[in-house]
Amino acid sequence: MQRVNMIMAESPGLITICLLGYLLSAECTVFLDHENANKILNRPKRYNSGKLEEFVQGNLERECMEEKCSFEEAREVFENTERTTEFWKQYVDGDQCESNPCLNGGSCKDDINSYECWCPFGFEGKNCELDVTCNIKNGRCEQFCKNSADNKVVCSCTEGYRLAENQKSCEPAVPFPCGRVSVSQTSKLTRAETVFPDVDYVNSTEAETILDNITQSTQSFNDFTRVVGGEDAKPGQFPWQVVLNGKVDAFCGGSIVNEKWIVTAAHCVETGVKITVVAGEHNIEETEHTEQKRNVIRIIPHHNYNAAINKYNHDIALLELDEPLVLNSYVTPICIADKEYTNIFLKFGSGYVSGWGRVFHKGRSALVLQYLRVPLVDRATCLRSTKFTIYNNMFCAGFHEGGRDSCQGDSGGPHVTEVEGTSFLTGIISWGEECAMKGKYGIYTKVSRYVNWIKEKTKLT
């Protein structure tokens, strides 16, 4: 034993070699072989497995989906700052455009905790909710729209109204504003409101030439003092309507412009014939205590009207009353817009006519005020429907199939267009061939041609 100890002390290297040989010859039971080890760690190889990531292109799944990435790591994937920024906006807080917040056709661009709407022409605001041009839906104005110097929408209202708090709607500024039905039992019968379409306001006024200088022999019209197929109006439903009495009662109609003036057809009036105007009328054979009678003290036909040349060209006249009318729910003026808007309103496509005229061709006159909704007829169809001249200051309205029309005794009465609950004068009943005849239409004086003249002559002093 002493000898062994001496050998170990003198030859430590020998001992180490012996131990190493023993270990190498022993069977290893701690580690699995290569094949079995792979069965336990069965993990798919990654895209760049075996390579240094710093030297390969980034992978979106590896960089940002398996674990949260930084902007720089995302930049490695896209290799483009702009594309990385677009991805980053949604990656950080989701897609803010998912709810489609942009209105009126706006395009949404996502941002971090926010979004941006790219608005089409005519709109602005956070969600493109603000109209900035009158060309689109009248700028959301209830009545009139004008573009300011910086191309912003400025709404306005006709006389007797003021802008509401929203700067879009119009509200009454006087007790009985024009064009409004205020009798409670008839307010439910107000005709369907007309909503502004998209309009090209630059070209809204037709490029028409008034044929002022045409000389033409007097034409022989049949029954051209021209509501057939209409309905009984309720008291106060058309408070701007008046009836004219002269040699015979209810020979023509008219509309209240203001307390002192009536507008009617020029062919209705004769110099030297006494005319009485009755406002607030409903049943011409009954006294309903809503009527107001006034005498006409002055007749002003349009300066281009000449019955000797043509009885229905420039067929418009103004009547001055001896005493002002007292405005109330049964006696209310009709609204008159400017030339541009009167023309736009007419193009809405349908209007209402009213009167006490004959209820059928050569038949009896109506006792109760009649009204009828009539569609506008395109000019080409209008011209083809008659052998008589249709001037540019006239328009056609009615039904091709016949059966409904204005008729004798309705002449001078109103053709009105309702705009968001307020009625505007767009025409004056003038003439036609018979009444409600198939293929024939009622012919009306186009008020847009005469609004400046009306307003100039009827100013209240």
Results as ranks from 00 to 15, higher is better:
residue 172 P to L: 04
residue 129 E to L: 01
residue 85 T to F: 06
residue 448 S to D: 13
residue 366 A to F: 10
residue 301 P to H: 09
residue 278 V to N: 04
residue 38 N to R: 15
residue 359 V to A: 13
residue 226 R to V: 08
residue 3 R to G: 11
residue 428 I to P: 00
residue 240 W to N: 00
residue 324 P to R: 05
residue 323 E to Y: 07
residue 102 C to T: 00
residue 460 L to I: 07
residue 11 S to V: 14
residue 250 A to L: 08
residue 440 K to V: 05
residue 424 F to I: 01
residue 51 K to T: 07
residue 79 E to G: 15
residue 289 H to C: 09
residue 33 D to T: 09
residue 168 K to G: 04
residue 396 C to I: 02
residue 360 F to Q: 07
residue 333 P to Q: 04
residue 284 I to H: 06
residue 151 N to L: 11
residue 31 F to G: 15
residue 418 E to A: 13
residue 185 Q to L: 10
residue 278 V to E: 03
residue 224 F to V: 11
residue 78 F to K: 15
residue 229 G to E: 13
residue 283 N to K: 06
residue 258 N to L: 00
residue 89 K to D: 15
residue 38 N to G: 15
residue 85 T to S: 07
residue 150 D to Y: 07
residue 340 E to V: 10
residue 454 I to V: 07
residue 17 I to F: 09
residue 118 W to A: 15
residue 124 E to R: 04
residue 428 I to C: 01
residue 21 G to A: 14
residue 194 T to W: 12
residue 410 D to W: 15
residue 305 Y to C: 00
residue 369 L to C: 03
residue 452 N to V: 06
residue 381 T to P: 05
residue 218 T to I: 09
residue 50 G to E: 05
residue 386 T to M: 14
residue 324 P to N: 05
residue 96 Q to I: 05
residue 14 L to R: 04
residue 40 I to V: 13
residue 147 N to Q: 13
residue 314 H to D: 05
residue 41 L to H: 15
residue 236 G to Y: 05
residue 325 L to H: 02
residue 436 A to F: 08
residue 159 E to L: 07
residue 216 Q to L: 11
residue 262 I to T: 01
residue 53 E to I: 07
residue 183 V to Y: 10
residue 442 G to W: 05
residue 380 A to T: 12
residue 60 L to K: 15
residue 378 D to Q: 09
residue 173 A to G: 07
residue 122 G to A: 05
residue 454 I to H: 01
residue 326 V to A: 10
residue 298 R to Q: 08
residue 446 K to N: 11
residue 337 A to F: 02
residue 241 Q to C: 05
residue 405 D to Y: 14
residue 67 E to G: 04
residue 146 K to R: 12
residue 310 N to M: 05
residue 17 I to V: 08
residue 286 E to D: 10
residue 333 P to W: 00
residue 140 R to Y: 07
residue 376 L to N: 04
residue 113 N to C: 03
residue 384 R to E: 10
residue 421 G to P: 02
residue 309 I to S: 07
residue 382 C to N: 02
residue 168 K to S: 04
residue 362 K to C: 03
residue 457 K to F: 07
residue 352 Y to K: 02
residue 232 D to T: 13
residue 69 C to H: 03
residue 445 T to H: 05
residue 34 H to S: 07
residue 458 T to K: 02
residue 385 S to D: 12
residue 461 T to A: 14
residue 426 T to I: 01
residue 246 G to S: 11
residue 395 F to Q: 00
residue 444 Y to L: 05
residue 457 K to R: 15
residue 447 V to K: 00
residue 440 K to I: 03
residue 436 A to I: 11
residue 407 C to K: 04
residue 324 P to C: 03
residue 313 N to S: 10
residue 99 S to Y: 04
residue 243 V to G: 04
residue 161 Y to N: 00
residue 185 Q to F: 12
residue 254 G to C: 01
residue 402 G to P: 09
residue 289 H to Q: 06
residue 286 E to N: 10
residue 458 T to A: 06
residue 65 M to Y: 15
residue 356 W to R: 10
residue 230 G to F: 12
residue 368 V to H: 13
residue 302 H to W: 06
residue 438 K to P: 14
residue 66 E to V: 05
residue 439 G to A: 06
residue 459 K to N: 15
residue 222 N to I: 08
residue 36 N to S: 10
residue 165 E to Y: 11
residue 267 H to E: 02
